[in-house]
Simulated scan of single mutants.
Amino acid sequence: MTEGPVRGETVEVSEESFAHLPCGIDLCHQTFGDPADEAVLLVMGLGGPMGWWPTGFCELLAERGFFVVRYDNRDTGRSTKLRHHRVSRSDVVKAFLGRESAPYGLDDLADDAVGLLDHLQIDDAHVVGISMGGMIAQTLAVEHAARVRSLTSMMSTTGARRVGRVDPRVIPMMLTPVGRTRPEYAENSVRNGKLTGSTAFPTDDEVARARALETYDRGWIASGVSRHMLAVLTQRDRTERLGAVHVPTTVIHGTRDLLVHPSGGRATARAIAGAELLEIAGLGHDLPAQLHETFADAIAATAARAR
């Protein structure tokens, strides 16, 4: 059992377990709350294990009456690693230029999420995705509409190359190895977080370091990050297909996001009829603790619109 929830109430927290998908992928996942409640599926972004959805945040959502599911995407955490698909730095550069394919795409990652819902016997869920996870969540809403009750897309984009661009200041960081050893990975992660994180809502260095060490210890591999990057860089433009999404949708984006320009969030909100756009001044590309209540409120309000 993890540390108790923020408000002092008891939230049931499962042990980590595995869903064995028909495609051969094993997804590690964990749940919070009562399985009888409406499900919230949390989809993390590029290179991020499920722990990047902080335990306290998951408990906060469970306290609002949701059955919360977080999981490791393939190639992260304790889920299946596809090491046999080797990716070089030149492959990533070619993908930046639109000249490369990927071992798997966002459709495959969305299919993984559906497989996890099947495993948990969840018919549909309020789907919340951040960054690449937002792209996966959007793909779910497009390709598996019956499984999505509401959509919250955070710090993400439509796949159109004219919006959501990466700030040139972070491209060298994306192409530089984070480090081979545990200490190197932790220190570089803290430094990179200062570049891409929220200026108005800073994260304490020790909190960031502890998260980085947990990420490394649970199975971080550089090649997995590269395969995720190829999936993002080779994605199709979803703008037209997002026009067919009719579930309640909220788009959350920060004005200080250097990894996905705010134009990506605005384009997502424009593409989906009735979508609400929440832009937060000073928010970067992270989930600062100072805004957990704000994020939870937005997710709950979006879910309420689905009722």
Rank of each mutant, 00 (worst) to 15 (best):
L140K: 01
F32W: 13
L278A: 14
L21M: 09
N188V: 14
G45A: 10
L61P: 08
H253T: 13
I280D: 12
P5F: 05
A303S: 14
A210K: 11
R83T: 15
A281Y: 07
T234I: 00
L259N: 05
K194H: 14
F67Y: 15
R209D: 07
V166I: 10
G115F: 07
A281N: 11
E3T: 15
L195V: 15
A110K: 04
D257S: 05
V11T: 12
M1W: 00
L151F: 14
A222S: 12
A296H: 03
A19Q: 15
E3Q: 14
G133E: 12
G164E: 00
T239C: 10
I299N: 03
P262F: 03
T157N: 11
L213V: 11
G129V: 01
A304T: 11
A222P: 00
G47Q: 03
H253D: 09
G243M: 05
V87F: 03
G115T: 09
P5M: 08
V232D: 03
P183K: 08
T10L: 13
E59C: 15
V178P: 02
S226R: 12
C23S: 15
A231I: 02
G65T: 08
I130N: 07
T215V: 07
A102V: 00
V6E: 13
E63V: 06
R256V: 09
I280E: 11
R89A: 14
G24K: 02
S79M: 08
D107K: 08
E293G: 15
V11Q: 01
E15Y: 06
D297H: 04
V128R: 03
M229A: 13
R305G: 10
P262N: 09
D257R: 04
D297F: 01
P262Q: 07
H126F: 09
S150E: 07
F32P: 04
D111T: 15
L21G: 05
